[in-house]
C-alpha cells in the first residue's frame, strides 16, 4: 500500500456509522475508497451534493456531476443536490460531522495553514475556512514532511493561518496525534516507524499520550 493510501485508510477508521463527511482535495479524496464496509457514511461535497458515490467508469462520466476537486463522481440512492448557499449553511451551521482536510502546516496547538503560500499571490481560498469553522470534527491528513524534507508540524505557522479553530486529529505517514487543550499528543506510530524518527521529523513539541504508553496495539 502506498503511504497516501495508508493515511487515507487510517483516517477512514475514524468515521462512524451515519456520519456526514466532507473530504478535501488530495489525500482526503482517497478516504472515499477506504471506508470500512460495516458502516455507512454520507459524503458531502461543497459544490452541492450530499450522497457522493464512487468515481464513474469513463463511459458513464456526467459533465454536470463533479466533486469539489472538479473530478467526475456518481451519486448514491438517497442523494440530493442543492445550491452553494445551502451547502455552506450545512457546513457553517454545524451540520457536517467530520471534515478531512489536507494542510501545508500545523502548529503546536493544532491550528492549520492550508490556503496560501508566503510570497505568492493570495488568490484562492475556496471552502477551507468555512469547513474549519463549522465542521463538528476536523481530521488532518498529510505527509509528515514537505517536499524539502521539512516538518509540516511546526512550533509556529509561517504560512497564513486558515482559521483560529483547532483541529481534532492529525494523521501523517509516520504517526497519529490527537490535539488536546495542552497541545499535541502522540497516540500511534505507523508500522515500522520509530519514536525517534517522529521526534526527529516533528518541529513542534508533543507529548506521548497515556494510551500510547500503555502499549496500545498499532491499528493499521
Amino acid at each position: 500500500m502506498n503511504v497516501k493510501k495508508y493515511i487515507a485508510a487510517r483516517a477512514a477508521k475514524e468515521l462512524k456509522h451515519g456520519d456526514i463527511v466532507n473530504l478535501g482535495i488530495g489525500i482526503p479524496t482517497l478516504v472515499a475508497d477506504n471506508i470500512p464496509s460495516d458502516i455507512k457514511v454520507f459524503l458531502h461535497s461543497e459544490n452541492g451534493i450530499l450522497g457522493v458515490g464512487p468515481t464513474p467508469e469513463p463511459e458513464h462520466i456526467d459533465q454536470n456531476l463533479v466533486n469539489a476537486g472538479k473530478l467526475p463522481v456518481t451519486v448514491l440512492e438517497g442523494s440530493s443536490f442543492f445550491d452553494s448557499a445551502s451547502s455552506f449553511a450545512m457546513i457553517r451551521g454545524g451540520h457536517v460531522s467530520v471534515s478531512i482536510l489536507g494542510v501545508l502546516q500545523i502548529d503546536a496547538i493544532g491550528r492549520i495553514a492550508n490556503w496560501a503560500v508566503p510570497g505568492k499571490s493570495v488568490l484562492g481560498v475556496g471552502g477551507a475556512m468555512d469547513l474549519l469553522e463549522g465542521s463538528k470534527k476536523v481530521i488532518v491528513t498529510t505527509m509528515h514532511t514537505n517536499n524539502q524534507g521539512e516538518s509540516k508540524i511546526v512550533k509556529e505557522l509561517t504560512y497564513p493561518i486558515t482559521s483560529e479553530r483547532i483541529v481534532d486529529l492529525i494523521i501523517t505517514d509516520l504517526a497519529v496525534f490527537a490535539v488536546k487543550e495542552d497541545g499535541l499528543h502522540l497516540i500511534e506510530l505507523s508500522p515500522g516507524v520509530s519514536l525517534e524518527e517522529v521526534q526527529q521529523k516533528t518541529d513542534a513539541p508533543f507529548q506521548i499520550a497515556e494510551s500510547f504508553n500503555k502499549g496500545k496495539e498499532v491499528t493499521a
Partner: peptide, 11 residues
C-alpha cells in the same frame, strides 16, 4: 482580485 471564502461569497 477580491477573495472571499466560498461560503461567505454564496451567502
Amino acid at each position: 482580485v477580491e477573495l472571499l471564502p466560498q461560503g461567505t461569497m454564496s451567502e
